[in-house]
Simulated assay, not measured.
Amino acid sequence: MNNDTTASEDLRDETAAEAPEVAEHDAAEGLKAELEDLRKQLLYTQAETQNVRRRMEKDAADARAYAATGFARDMLSVADNLTRALAAIPPAMREEEGTKALVTGLEMTAKELDNVFQRNGITRIDSLGAKLDPNKHQAMIELPSDQEPGTIVQEMQAGYMIKERLLRPALVGVAKAGETPGVNASA
């Protein structure tokens, strides 16, 4: 039995010697897995922080670019009234000495207003002759025309953009499909 006892003691000694190595290996693997999880969380957090920073920068840029939108919309009615006033002045009145300076002043005011709009990224939408774009135009009526159907043939109120956004749609009349002016369908 002595030999058996010695053999089992040797086996216990070998197992006991291997146990710390196995435990250290398992602990190292556990730490590696934890380290990898923490690295992934760090990368995710960095990416999220960068996305939030970009979003905030874009929001701040949009706020700066479009801060005057409400004021600009209010100024459009002033521009419309000034344009109507200039259009209502008869040609004879434009040449009279008593009103010539007044007309010139009104024209200069309209030109300066246009310059202020341009400096602030406010542009007029060119509508006449263009195809109806529901993102920029609002069709008010259909008119008989020799133009292709859907083509803008009349502008009732100018539309404006502020940078890339619609400030006010143009109110327009579009060519009606299937009709041409001056042609009698019953003839």
Score class of each variant (00 low, 15 high):
residue 15 T to M: 15
residue 186 S to F: 11
residue 105 G to D: 07
residue 132 L to M: 02
residue 14 E to F: 10
residue 174 V to K: 06
residue 74 D to N: 14
residue 116 V to F: 14
residue 36 E to K: 04
residue 41 Q to D: 01
residue 166 L to F: 10
residue 107 E to A: 13
residue 116 V to I: 14
residue 138 Q to L: 15
residue 165 R to L: 13
residue 76 L to P: 03
residue 140 M to G: 11
residue 114 D to L: 01
residue 186 S to R: 03
residue 119 R to V: 01
residue 27 A to W: 00
residue 157 Q to Y: 02
residue 136 K to I: 00
residue 49 T to I: 00
residue 20 P to A: 13
residue 83 T to R: 08
residue 77 S to N: 13
residue 102 L to Q: 12
residue 187 A to V: 14
residue 80 D to M: 09
residue 39 R to Q: 15
residue 167 L to R: 02
residue 181 P to Q: 03
residue 48 E to W: 05
residue 73 R to C: 10
residue 145 S to G: 01
residue 108 M to E: 13
residue 169 P to M: 06
residue 15 T to W: 15
residue 30 G to L: 05
residue 175 A to I: 06
residue 152 I to T: 04
residue 99 T to C: 03
residue 80 D to L: 00
residue 16 A to E: 09
residue 16 A to C: 08
residue 18 E to V: 14
residue 33 A to L: 11
residue 18 E to Y: 14
residue 166 L to Q: 10
residue 53 R to D: 07
residue 147 Q to E: 14
residue 148 E to M: 06
residue 127 S to A: 15
residue 60 A to I: 07
residue 146 D to H: 13
residue 126 D to S: 13
residue 60 A to Y: 03
residue 40 K to D: 07
residue 187 A to N: 11
residue 51 N to E: 13
residue 173 G to E: 01
residue 98 G to K: 11
residue 14 E to D: 14
residue 126 D to K: 10
residue 150 G to M: 02
residue 135 N to W: 03
residue 120 N to H: 15
residue 81 N to Q: 10
residue 97 E to K: 02
residue 154 Q to I: 08
